[in-house]
Amino acid sequence: MMDWLQRLGSTSLSVFERLGRGNLFLLRVLAALPSLVPRPGLVIAQLYSVGVLSMMLIVISGLNVGMVLGLQGYNTLVDFGSEESLGQLVALSLVRELGPVVAALLFAGRAGSALTAEIGLMKATEQLSGMEMMAVDPLKRVVAPRFIAGIISMPLLAAMFSAVGVLGGFFVGVGLLGVDSGAFWSQMQSKVDLYDDILNGVIKSVVFGFVAAWIAVFEGYDAVPNTEGVSRATTRTVVHTAFAVLGLDFILTALMFGNE
């Protein structure tokens, strides 16, 4: 009985310890951000590996999600004779929910895991300690550029996801199923609001980008410096980001659209 209580206590303590370490780490990374201003090259290099290399995945997934939404939405709406609302359905679901959330989940799988593995391996091969020996702060040189690149890429990727998804829905709805193209766009434009929907979607994706990048760099930096530790940290990045994004999405949705 006492053993069980002790295990429970130590597990909870280690969870809180990690949370605390994560927050202190975030503060140190935020404090290291100003040092990037004179060296934008570091951020651009990370934007390439975080953003540009994820772009193809995001665009293809967005197109597919949009096309499936178009098909499914049409099949349901046609029963009510209101297939003209297809544009509105596709655009609202993409801009409000699917764009930010699915892009964040894909981002965690594609870019977040890579960030964690990279930083974790740097730690395991003692490159980070080597930098410290040379009086180079690894937080400024390695972590901060990756963190900010994640925050910048995420809204752009989510916007691409939504835009390509709307085009995919347009392609299926108007091109294949014969919804009137004017009704598709006009219903969409009359119901999608720039501030209520698009801006809130962008805010969501910025928050998700922040969380995803934070978890990815923290897990890498906090990884047990051996092969198994890095592999576990990479898995944790994907799992924790997914939980955090889905949980935050509910809270943000309740705050943004709850009182309509």
Binding site: P155, M160, Q189, S190, I198
Partner: peptide
């Protein structure tokens, strides 16, 4: 491409 997507969402999808 990201900015173009945002502009498209603002101009083509929303009521702007």
């Amino acid at each position: 491409a990201g900015i173009a997507a945002l502009v498209m969402l603002a101009m083509k999808v929303s009521n702007l």
